[in-house]
Simulated assay, not measured.
Amino acid sequence: MRAGFDGVQVHAANGYLIDEFLRDGTNFRDDAYGGSIENRVRLLKEITQAVIEIAGAGRTGVRLTPNGTDQGVRYSDPGPVFVAVARTLSALGVAHLELREPPMNGTFGASDRPPFAPAIRKAFVGVTILNSDYGPDRAAAAISRDEADAIAFGRPFIANPDLPQRFSAGAPLAADKGVLWFTQGPEGYLDYPALA
């Protein structure tokens, strides 16, 4: 916050550490951080509380991937744990939840079940942001159906630094170069052409 950022998003998604605590397919602990849903949510709750102490609840968000499997780790039944997470984070007053749920025909990961975001949205009092495989039409439809308050774009922004202008103009999108992600140098990051 001293560096001037507007807020902090806790990354509790994609099969990484916090997500591993949530998932019963990876969390085999028998202490206060394992077993029951309340215990598996405890680490996320404590980390979020620590961030809130610095940033404030209104400047704290959390990213989740409420899908069945992500990066080799699995939930047997994601529904109850994510409703519990949503209620816990609502009680803490966080500003937003970002939910990355690839569709069943996703282009960067695919779900093995329909999205769970609607149940999470009902349990969370705050801004809900959806992410994964959205283009302008799908995003507008989701917003118009009140499935979310906003849509986040990741991969399209890598290849289209002028993404809002392209959406507004109905212009075609440049394709990202996935083989260059996480490489050194500007190629695949800074060399995508802007609209003429």
Rank of each mutant, 00 (worst) to 15 (best):
M1N: 12
A3D: 14
A3P: 01
D6P: 00
A12R: 01
A13G: 11
A13D: 13
G15Y: 13
I18E: 00
D19C: 08
D24G: 07
T26E: 10
N27L: 08
F28Y: 14
R29K: 12
R29Y: 07
Y33A: 04
G34F: 08
V41G: 05
R42L: 09
K45A: 11
K45H: 14
K45I: 02
T48K: 06
A50M: 07
E53T: 07
A55K: 05
G56K: 13
A57P: 07
V62M: 14
R63H: 15
N67W: 10
G68H: 07
T69W: 05
D70Y: 12
Q71D: 13
V73A: 07
Y75A: 09
Y75S: 08
P78V: 11
V81D: 03
A84M: 06
R87H: 06
R87C: 02
L89Q: 13
A91P: 02
H96N: 11
L99D: 01
R100D: 01
R100L: 03
E101I: 03
E101P: 03
M104S: 08
F108P: 00
F108G: 02
G109N: 02
G109T: 04
P114T: 11
P115W: 02
F116Y: 13
A117K: 00
P118C: 04
I120K: 02
R121Q: 03
A123S: 05
V125R: 15
V127E: 04
V127I: 13
T128Y: 04
T128C: 14
T128N: 11
L130E: 00
N131T: 10
S132A: 12
Y134H: 00
A140R: 15
A142P: 11
I143L: 15
D146G: 02
E147T: 09
E147C: 10
E147H: 05
A148I: 06
A150W: 11
I151R: 04
F153T: 07
G154F: 08
I158C: 10
A159R: 10
D162L: 01
L163W: 05
P164S: 06
P164L: 09
P164M: 06
F167Y: 14
S168V: 06
S168M: 09
S168N: 12
S168W: 10
G170Y: 13
A171S: 14
A171W: 09
P172T: 10
A174I: 09
A175T: 14
D176V: 09
L180H: 07
F182S: 14
T183P: 11
Q184H: 11
G185C: 10
P186V: 07
Y189E: 13
P193A: 06
A196V: 07
